[in-house]
């Protein structure tokens, strides 16, 4: 379990994160939702220690997150950060050299799953295929937790469908996924848990099936209550 406790973050005088606490469990898909600019990405970056925080702590499986434990987590940013002149294969080799947890077999599986050719140059890939390579490079790591920032932003319908299918597949099975999105289209059925962020705070934290069962509300219904 990733446990986020009272995260605080200031940009100048602006409190972006006032007091963020929530849990994301292994074997579940947890979704951070909020309108744009609400600090969702900052939370993920805070967990990964990619941005300094002004308070709070993160625990993983009951222990404070130290540098060794970062081997158990990966962060998939919203855009591919590899050099455009590289081929897909070169970017995979780069990951292999850089991360001990790189799983070559899983990487090959993912190439087939996403129907990507590894000889292709990154600069020649469509936006959708770039997003898939970006996912591939993170998913191929043998880590317990996957953090993903806006995995569906700005891609075409069919790439979106393919990336969506990751979440009902063996590719994330038994792992913990924590992701951000502002667009839930076709994704509601895939999420276990939702954490709604507004004004630097967690306003709702709930399991989607429980919400449907006890209150008869969809995730979008709850969002409407909070944001409108």
């Amino acid at each position: 379990m990733i446990e986020v406790k009272q995260l605080k973050k200031k940009y100048g005088k602006r409190h972006v994160l006032k007091d963020i606490s929530f849990q994301a469990h292994k074997g579940e898909i947890t979704c951070l939702i909020g309108v744009n600019g609400v600090g969702k990405t900052t939370i993920l970056k805070g967990i990964m220690n990619l941005t300094p925080l002004n308070g709070g702590m993160v625990e993983i499986d009951g222990k404070p997150l130290t540098s060794e434990r970062y081997e158990d987590i990966t962060f998939i940013p919203d855009t591919l950060t590899m050099m455009p002149s590289m081929t897909v294969k070169q970017s995979m080799d780069f990951m292999k050299d850089y991360y001990r947890s790189w799983n070559p077999k899983r990487a090959e599986d993912l190439l087939t799953f996403f129907k990507i050719k590894k000889e292709e140059r990154i600069s020649d890939l469509s936006k959708g295929n770039k997003a898939k390579v970006n996912m591939l490079l993170g998913l191929a790591l043998d880590v317990d937790y996957l953090l993903m920032d806006e995995p569906f932003s700005g891609i075409d319908l069919f790439s979106r469908e393919q990336i969506l299918s990751v979440f009902s597949s063996h590719l994330v099975e038994d792992r913990g996924v924590l992701l951000t999105t502002h667009d839930l289209t076709d994704f509601e059925t895939l999420v276990d848990k939702v954490v709604l962020i507004d004004d630097g705070q967690v306003v709702r934290e709930f399991y989607t099936e429980e919400m449907r069962e006890t209150e008869g509300k969809s995730v979008v219904d709850v969002m409407r209550e909070v944001y409108q």
Partner: peptide, 17 residues
Amino acid sequence: RRELASQLGINPNTAQR
């Protein structure tokens, strides 16, 4: 369960349930 989840586009935990 896994097959059902990907066929229906649902979470494997839901298929399990």
